[in-house]
Structure formats: C-alpha cells, structure tokens
Design a protein around this nucleic acid. Structure first.
Lengths: 232, 232
DNA sequence: CTCCAAAATATGTTCATACTTATTAGCATA
DNA sequence: TATGCTAATAAGTATGAACATATTTTGGAG
C-alpha cells in the first residue's frame, strides 16, 4: 500500500496519486470521507483536511450531500506574492530609491471617476512617482487617492516615502482587485522610465476598498524586462 | 452562517479587526492560541484554523515555539485562476476555435534546451497554434514538448484539440512555474494575431515538470487588450 | 403526474484531549 | 568565549464524537 502514515499530507498525497493515475477519473465521484478514513486508517477530520486542501488547489470539487468529485476541467490556481516595491527591490540586493514626480489635487478623468464613484467635479489626490533600483528606473507609479476616505493622505508629501509603501503601512483595507496587462511606452513614459518609446511595459492596475468605498487606485508601469513569476 | 460567535470565521474576523485597528501592531507578537481560545470562548483548534487562514493570506507569520506575530511588511497574496483557454473563452459566451499552425520535431534553441536540460542534438516536439474567440485571434501558443517524457504526444496531431487542453487532460504533473511579462508583436506575431506590428502583447510563459523532468514549456502571446484579473 | 414537505446523507464545523515537532532559552561544558 | 545538551514551550497534528447545514431523495397530498 502507498499511504501508510496517517497524516493529512499522506492522505493528500494518496488522493493526488489516485487522481493522477486516473484511478479516480475526471468527473467521477470519489469515495466519501468516512469510507476513505476507514480505508486509510485515520480519522474523518484528517481526510477532511486533506480533501479541503486538494479542493483549494482546484483538482476536486466538493458539495455537501452530493460528495466530492474529480474536477472535469482542472483550473490551476497560482498564488502570487505582491510585495511592497521597496521590499521587492531590496530583497534582490539592489538599492531602492523613490522620487516624487508630481502631487496635486485634481479632478480625475472619467475612467478614474467611475472607479471611485465620485461626483463629477470632486477632486482626488493624484500622485505620480518613480521607483528606482540601483539608480535605474524600475516602475512608474500613477496613483489616485480619495483623501477624504484616507486620513493623513492629504498631509503626507510622499517625497520621503512612496505612496505604495505609505498606504500599505497606514491604511487598513478590506479588499481590492488587481489586473495585469501589457502596454507600450508613450513618449512621456519612455522619458520617465529611461527606455525607448514603444517599448513593451508590464502593467498592473490595482484598486483597494473599504466599506464599499474605493480608497485608492494605482497604475504601475514596469520598465522593460520586468517579469512576474510564481510556482504552481 | 459565519455569524456564530465561536466560528472560525468569527475568530478570523476578530483577528483581522485587531490587526487593522493596530490593536496588534505590525511586528508585534499576538496572544498564544490557547489564550485567544479562552478569551474568545472557543476551542484552540478553532483559533488554530482561523490563524492558519490569516497566515496564508500573509498578514501574520507563525513559527513553532516562537508564536505568531503581525507581519512587518505585509505581502498581499493573490490567487489567480488559470483555466484551460477553451474554457476561458466559452465561459465568456464566445465561440472557441483552435487552428494548428505548425507541428514538427526540432532541435530547440538554446534557451529552450536549457530549460529541458536536454542533450545538444536532442529533438523536441514543437507545436504552434492559434486560439480564437468568435473567429478572432485570442492567443498564439508556442509550445515545446518532451515527447519521450509525455506518452502519446508524438502520435497526437493537435489539429482537433489544442496542446493546451490535451496536456491538461492527459498529462499528470507535479509542479510548474509561470511567469507574466510584456512584449511587442513581431511582424510574424502581428500577422498571426491580426494586430499591428509593435502592438503590446501580454505574455505568459509556463513550464511543467514531473519527477524533476520538464515535460512541456509554453509561451502564450495574448492579443492586444487581454487582461488578467483577480480579487485580493 | 406534479408539487411540496420531510427524511436521509455527505460535507462542514466545533470541541476536548492528547500527542508531536520545531525552536528557543538556559545551562553546562570545552 | 564559543559550543553543545536539555528542558520548556507554542504551534502543528490526530482523534472521536457531536452537531450544523446544504442538497438530494423520497414519499405523500393534491
């Protein structure tokens, strides 16, 4: 027999083995927790823990009363770590620096206004800055902040600390969304990032909210060559 | 519901509240599981479950004997769903189609050979194809497969099923890595994707392995406008 | 036969308890 | 002072039992 030990990891390993070996085929139901527990010689709670982990990875689907079944179209799930930019750079052993490009209260363009659901003439704090690694441009940060909803934002000048880091440290938030895409450098962006106009830029756009209200929205343009990497 | 005072969700919510309110400040240790259990009137296992979830989200760090502490530099963790391309398109209600561009056994370029750790003269299966949504180009797939390590790959012609889907359905794998970046369309890529040369393309590069051996390596070029989106 | 309520059932959760393991701190030794 | 052993400790895990909850099945009423 394969899974002799009765740890939940061993149960998970055995479950994965059976799925990979097609002993349990895609779309088919797998034995009930109680049966598996008896077969593998452990408690149902142990099987439950193992199956919960497998379900989180997307390989099986579980429903009360209906039981568990091997997912028909396995969705791989990857977890991305999104660190504060300064940490990301310093972890690579490079020197971090941030320079503020502009900071102003402005009436946002329609796309941003829609995201904040703010009034047509309402002003938001608009901060642009450049993150640098070893003196070279790393990422251009273009951020809008609802100063009303973020206490202290209006009185921070962001020349000593990037809004990226200040917000992470100061503003508790409940949720957010993030999108990744590709763009080409406009002349102005190329100038700031020190790359040719038309160069491919990796873009992340993020919004974070609390109490149904958007607190801040940011667009990060990464200098050419940037790669976001993870295991799965 | 998650409202029950002594549910693990309630414990998690309380823990998150204390972190957000700075009652537990970044870098500081939080009470032991046993103490929290007593204070919140639940079992230690319940607290353990809650803290494990919070730790997975990156907000606290846990170490045996040392206890748990609020993370000093909170790393946001986002989970990305990476579906089979056909499913992704059909879920949006669009018609999926795949067309094979080329399929051949070739000696791979050095970058690919390094990834497969294959011998200098060794040949790999090279498959290029185009995924389409509602008749329009969606993504260009450029894939290398170790036909020796993937049974059946050599005899599948991939004109009826994309290598993307075939591999997901047929090949059990243990792990992989994935990277996201930006690129600009070369003339050939622009031709295939029906976009102007120089257009920004979102790129994913993935490798999957089993038993320390790389099974397949793929580069997906997404047509301009593609966005990868998730909650956090 | 259709529709709705009740029973059955598999997963989900909580609990008390016991044991395991990694890590630290303190102490003794070289 | 540096090093290695040992004990203390907090998280990690396992268990059986009980109850909760969602969902399907069944069976009865109309």
């Amino acid at each position: 027999m394969s899974g002799a030990a009765n740890s939940w990891q061993a149960v998970r390993a055995e479950v994965l083995r059976r799925i990979r070996s097609r002993e349990w085929a895609p779309g088919q139901p797998i034995p009930h927790e109680a049966d598996l527990a008896q077969e593998l010689g452990c408690a149902r709670a142990t099987v439950n823990r193992a199956l919960r982990e497998v379900a989180e990875s997307g390989l099986i689907e579980r429903r009360r009363r209906a039981g568990s079944r091997v997912a028909l179209h396995p969705v791989r799930r990857a977890t991305l770590d999104i660190p504060v930019i300064r940490m990301e750079i310093e972890t690579r052993g490079e020197a971090y620096d941030f320079s503020l490009v502009s900071r102003a209260e402005e009436v946002p363009p329609p796309a941003i206004r829609a995201r904040f659901k703010s009034a047509p003439e309402a002003r938001l704090l608009h901060v642009v800055g450049l993150h640098m690694a070893d003196g070279k441009p790393h990422a251009l940060e273009d951020r809008w902040i609802d100063a009303q909803a973020v206490p202290g934002a209006g009185t921070t000048d962001f020349s000593q600390i990037s809004p990226n880091e200040w917000l992470v440290l100061s503003v508790p938030f409940e949720g957010g969304d993030i999108a990744f895409s590709a763009s080409v450098a406009s002349p102005a962006e190329a100038e700031a990032l020190g790359c040719p106009a038309g160069a491919p830029l990796f873009v992340t756009e993020r919004a974070t909210w609390r109490n149904e209200k958007t607190l801040t929205s940011v667009r990060l343009l990464f200098a050419p060559g940037y790669r976001l990497h993870t295991r799965l």
